[in-house]
């Protein structure tokens, strides 16, 4: 199995069937600040998976959370 040395993503993030798991840092109305595994943060629309709390993990596609995760993912 070919495991790349780093976990960088070379796939099409935006338009394909690709999504990333982020952790919710804070929620403000329909948006939430979410943190990636590398520490980077971004504002994500979370109306489709509300309600959320800090620490929840969400599957994010094109800056919109499409699912709240259970267990490890």
């Amino acid at each position: 199995m070919t495991i790349p040395d780093t976990h960088e993503s070379t796939s099409c993030i935006t338009c394909g069937d690709v999504a990333v798991v982020l952790e919710v840092v804070s929620v403000d109305g329909g948006d939430a600040v979410c943190r990636a595994d590398d520490g980077g943060t971004e504002v994500v629309a979370v109306e489709l998976v509300a309600p959320l709390r800090p620490g929840d993990r969400v599957l994010v596609h094109a800056r919109v959370a499409i699912e709240k995760l259970r267990g490890t993912a």
Binding site: G16, G30, A45, E47, L48, H61, A62
Partner: peptide, 17 residues
């Protein structure tokens, strides 16, 4: 807008906003 059902929700949410 392009994509399967993974991407359609983001377009839908944008239209609603």
């Amino acid at each position: 807008a392009i994509g399967f059902e993974t991407t359609a929700p983001s377009t839908a949410l944008t239209l609603q906003r």
